[in-house]
């Protein structure tokens, strides 16, 4: 344990010395990692938020089932309620629906309107709520198969659009992340290699006095990981800042947008997961970059 402490003392000192000598090159490395992790973190966050939005829409989602003329809503409600993916069924008789409609249209004389149209033109209706947004389309199809059901309507399109958007976004961010990861590894690798070159004399002496390769190159690897962690911290700060800014902007907007904004709020578990993911990716990028840099020297 004491030995480990003593060693970490040396390693930290050497790592710090390397950072001090890196000068502006440190900036190049850290800022590349920052850009990578900022974009990555942002797209990850947006993807999570879209998913949140989807579930929020999903819970609002109702399937409107229109029955054939003459079929009573109550008679089907019991059957539909048995389906495992159904959370709630609300039967609406055509009389109720008609009353509501006429009322909404602002017509006072309901009798007159009815007689003008040769009776109530509507049919009985079921409002079915699904348990999960993913179940909606399957449930709708299943209900449509039932005898006595004329037509099934649900807001599938909006949900599908958002799902597609999310998927598209995921692909784009995957592409960008991959490219930027390679760039960041290359920049870190170059930075570390320059520092190794600048300290070649020291390294040569170290080799001659019997320092092991691990001992010589561990500080450089720690330095690379430091770049990654620093980049992750800055990127996280930026993301939190952007988040805050958008929230302030949305607070002044109309109710509907505020309703949307509620869906953008992430659960606490995701709030912790984001910085952890950034730190993880950042330090692995740093580790890989510095490993590439010292591999060539260390293998000699």
């Amino acid at each position: 344990m004491l030995k480990l402490l003593n060693k970490s003392d040396y390693l930290l000192r050497e790592t710090f010395l390397g950072l001090k000598r890196g000068g502006w090159m440190n900036w190049a490395a850290v800022s590349t990692v920052t850009v990578l992790l900022f974009l990555f973190g942002l797209s990850l966050q947006v993807s999570w938020q879209l998913e949140g939005l989807l579930t929020q829409f999903g819970s609002q989602l109702e399937i409107s089932v229109f029955l054939e003329t003459g079929v009573q809503a109550d008679s089907l409600a019991a059957t539909v309620e048995q389906f495992p993916t159904v959370s709630d069924v609300q039967p609406i008789s055509k009389e109720d629906a008609w009353e509501t409609l006429v009322d909404e249209m602002g017509i006072a004389d309901i009798e007159g309107a009815t007689s003008q149209l040769n009776g109530n033109p509507l049919v009985d209706q079921l409002n079915v709520k699904a348990r999960d947004s993913e179940d909606v389309s399957a449930l709708a199809e299943r209900i449509a198969q039932l005898p006595g059901v004329d037509e099934v309507l649900y807001v599938a399109e909006a949900v599908q659009r958002i799902a597609q958007l999310n998927q598209g976004l995921n692909w784009v961010s995957f592409g960008i992340t991959t490219m930027l990861t390679l760039t960041a590894i290359a920049v870190i690798s170059t930075t570390i290699r320059l520092i190794v070159m600048a300290r070649r004399r020291e390294i040569e002496v170290m080799q001659l006095v019997g320092a092991t390769s691990t001992w010589i190159y561990l500080p450089f690897i720690l330095q690379g990981i430091t770049f990654g962690i620093a980049g992750a911290l800055v990127a996280w700060g930026l993301i939190v800042g952007v988040e805050e800014f958008i929230h302030r902007l949305l607070a002044q907007q109309a109710d509907f947008i505020q309703f949307l904004a509620d869906g953008l709020v992430l659960p606490p578990s995701k709030l912790v997961l984001l910085p952890l993911t950034l730190l993880g990716l950042g330090s692995s990028v740093g580790l890989l970059g510095s490993l590439f840099a010292v591999r060539r020297f260390a293998l000699r």
Partner: peptide, 23 residues
């Protein structure tokens, strides 16, 4: 083969650092 930017003390201590001696 001395290291230019380190003092005499550090140059000599370097060997012992490299071998993992305590301060």
């Amino acid at each position: 083969k001395l290291i230019p930017r380190r003092t005499v003390y550090e140059n000599v201590a370097f060997v012992l650092w490299a071998q993992g001696y305590t301060r």
